[in-house]
Every structure is written in structure tokens, then in C-alpha cells.
Amino acid sequence: MVHTGAVLSMTGIHKQFGDVVALRGASLSVDRGRILGFLGPNGAGKTTMMRMIFGLVHPDAGEVSWNGAPVDADIRLRFGYMPEERGLYPKMKIAGQLIHFARLSGLSKADATDAVHHWLGVLGLGDRADAKLDELSHGNQQRAQLAAALAPNPELLVLDEPFAGLDPIGVESLSDTLRELAESGVAIVFSSHQLDLVEDVCQDVAIIADGRIVLSGGLDEIKEQSTRRRLTVDVDGAPWIPDLAGVEIVQAQGRAHCIVPGDAPVAEILAAAEAAGSVSRFAFEPPHLTDLYRVAVGP
């Protein structure tokens, strides 16, 4: 996948831990001002890839580069990271430790203080700045964690499962925050298992399975380019399945849909449906992300 706006590129990454091969030539790129959803089953290598961006794991082969230059400690100071394993100092005051982390990212004391209070305000923690971490609710601890990643005003934001454990309001406000950041030019990549959410928030996706990127690109393009289509038909108020070769039935949004070849005879199917009864819904559309994911990751 080649985007002109790619700022972070990971190419041909191999990594083996002892006898376990974690990554087999995985490549990933993140564009400036866009949000990439990073998907894949547990253990597929998402966290390892993300850790590699921050030098926490070193690739056996392959390259991690930023605007074409290999990523080093100085470049990493422009990145913000929220690890999957959330962690801050439980007994330190929120603002105090976030300022500490922001300063580790290279900000001056004054800039770090300003940035931390700005983000705590944006994320609704303005009045808890002097509370200790372990006095906060789970959701607020998560927000503090995000503030830690945002305070250095990064050009690249890497979030490992940022939506896990958030309530619907939290999900919405995080989504809005990410969109605003992307609009301001930040490159964002986050991993998630919530495909609907990814479809909602991301312009780009990359799906990793068994150490390889099996599908990647702009979400709309991938959908258009897919050779399959999703067909949803209601006849007499109930889901209706056409009698057609190559039909695959999937359950989504609490009902059955059909996945059919892109060149399926739409007119004939509609006629068959009308012959069966009163058609109240007939949708022939690009596959949803869940459909693409299922095919890409395999059974």
C-alpha cells in the first residue's frame, strides 16, 4: 500500500521470540492526518508491531522509518504511545506524573505544564489534576493515560486498544478527540477488536494475521475493490435468503445477511424476492469491515 502522505513506514518486519515466530515480513504505513485501524486476532502481532515503533522490541529484519529516515530516540520524542497494559504511578498526582512524562518526551517544564493542563481539561479531568491516580475511576484512569500520550503534542499517536473498557459516552468522546487530532494533521494508528467502531472512526485499516498484513488500505477503496458484496433482503418482514450458488450467510446487527459474488445477478435476485412476497428492504452494497475481516483472517 503506497500513500503519498505516509509518514510512518514499517517494511518487511520479521521478529522471532525464541521458537515462536511473531512477525513474518509485516509492512504497515500510517499517513499524516489520517486514522488507521489496526486489526487482527489476539496474538497476531499487533502489540509487537506497535512496540517496535517505540524501540521496545527490535525487529530481526525490516525497517521502521519516519519520513524516510530510520526512527531513532530523537524522532520517537515526536510520537505518543498508549500501551495496551495501562500503567501510571498509582501514588503520584495526575498532573505531576503527566508533566514528568511530558518532560521525558523533551518538553520544557513550562510547556509540559501547559500541555498537561490543556489535555486534562479537554479530556474532562481538569478538576482532578491534583488527585492521585488510584483515587480515579477506571474510565478516568484511562483518560489520564490518554492525556499522557497526548501531552507531548505528538505528530504520531499510537494507541493499543484505546477503546477497551470505555462506556458509550467515553467511546464517543475519544472518537471525536481522535478525529480532531487527525484533522489537525496528526497521524494516528490504533488497534481494536471493535470493528464497527473502526469502520466509524478510521479512514484506513490494516489487518494482521499470523504475523503478516493480509489486508490494508483506505477503507472505502478496500470495500469497493472487494469481489464480494453484502446483500440484505427482507421479504414479508423477515430476512430472506436467495437460492444462489456461492451465497454465504452471516449474522450481523442481530439478523442474517448474505455475502454474494460482486457479479451476482441483482435483477434476478430482486425478481425472485418479489415473487416470494412483499419486499420491504433490498440492499446490495459493498461488504462491511466485519465481512472483509472474516475473509482476511480466515476461519
Binding site: 512496540r51 517505540f54 524501540g55 521496545l56 530516540a73 520517537r76 520524542l77 510520537f79 504511545y81 500501551p83 497494559e85 495501562r86 500503567g87 501510571l88 504511578y89 498509582p90 512524562f101 521525558l104 518526551s105 499522557a148
Partner: peptide, 16 residues
């Protein structure tokens, strides 16, 4: 403590 609290990953993403 830093390992147990998982702070270590936050710290190591910034410094060596």
C-alpha cells in the same frame, strides 16, 4: 513497582 504497574512501557517509549 514499575513493572507491576506497567509504567515501564510508558517510560521506555520515551527513554532508553
Amino acid at each position: 513497582e514499575e513493572k507491576q504497574n506497567r509504567v515501564v512501557e510508558i517510560v521506555l517509549s520515551r527513554v532508553q
